[in-house]
Nucleic acid binder design. Sequence first.
DNA 1: GTTTAAATTAAACGTTTGTTTAATTGTTAG
DNA 2: CTAACAATTAAACAAACGTTTAATTTAAAC
Lengths: 207, 207
Amino acid sequence: MTEYNEKQLDILMAAESLFASEGFDGTSIRSIAKAAKVNIAMISYYFGSKEKMLEALILHRTSDMKMQLDNIFKEDLTPLEKVERLIDLYISRINKNKCMYQILHFELSTKKRLMDMKSYAEVKQQNMAAFRKIIKEGQESGLFKTNINIELIPPTIMGTLVHFQMNRPFFEAELGIKTDEAYENYIKNELTSHIKQTIKALLVHEN
Amino acid sequence: MTEYNEKQLDILMAAESLFASEGFDGTSIRSIAKAAKVNIAMISYYFGSKEKMLEALILHRTSDMKMQLDNIFKEDLTPLEKVERLIDLYISRINKNKCMYQILHFELSTKKRLMDMKSYAEVKQQNMAAFRKIIKEGQESGLFKTNINIELIPPTIMGTLVHFQMNRPFFEAELGIKTDEAYENYIKNELTSHIKQTIKALLVHEN
DNA sequence: GTTTAAATTAAACGTTTGTTTAATTGTTAG
DNA sequence: CTAACAATTAAACAAACGTTTAATTTAAAC
């Protein structure tokens, strides 16, 4: 867990927002330096290279993510309540780290820079394990259906949100949403409850 | 609907696969020319510029997509069967145009080249309209629930698939999938039926 | 066979790229 | 004060970029 000084963080934050909006290859170190208000040589000086800075950024963010799922377990909640809390956590996390997820998304989908996303893979594995545990708990107590594919539920949760964010211009037009605030509110309310409703319908016996 | 000769198509196809795997900014026109086995000047000669070639490519692909949803309507199917057919269509379409969707995904998410995706937006709108029609048909006949957000169902369908493809390395490890063929089969079988099951649970009254 | 236009080429264009250098300034410790 | 090291700078570097040029080859039309 490396510590960075203020100037290094300036650089990383400027890079994060630019990488997200312009892409890694679409962002020059000169534009990063300008946004971070430092000399272009500082980037190589501090991080070695543009690519190593990307790795540093991803490591910095993903190590932040080591999830505190434990308190969900400790609390006295029904399995369904736990699932709902997990969905809230997923959504707020993705929303809070929008830029990082955008970057990750692209880096994962291209073969160009096959960096070791060990740290990210770890987080994903932890999440999946925690999720599986909750579902099995619900199944054993007879609340959840058993003919389901547990591994494919997180993709449905996260995929729905990511797809909605990726096609934002389309949904803004389709739903008549005009401001940033209204879009965020739609995610917080309608989209979140749609996801919960969907997962609930899939998991829980109706009666 | 512009027609392209064989050499132009060679260029477009080479560009498509490279843009998908390396990104637009990560792909040089020299590498495209090499892959298409043409001189680098041919790209400017035929398309004007690298960027215009991207537009040509997207237009070429999306105009292919003008969906033949109509025959789904004409056939004598229950609303649920229609939904299932639509899901099959979505999935096979995304699978067939994997590269194009990868490119679109990135272009939509960055502010760098705000091209007019009019053609793509049109396809999406048509799809949404057709989908809405089917759902309302099911609701009016009392088969489908009415307390649902129709606009958010396509994001759930497509988002699940796209997320699964984007995080392929993770799911390969998580599910113990080793070959390309096994992965494609998993999509065709398990993933497809998971999506159908999920949407069905959301839509249909249990009994 | 000649004319005309399209296709194709190698070479060069001016930028921009990521990175390095070498010199200078700032800071801290003895 | 000065030695030592970190931080910062402007300038230069070679390489790669997208695009254009000008010359040549190919194909079609008359």
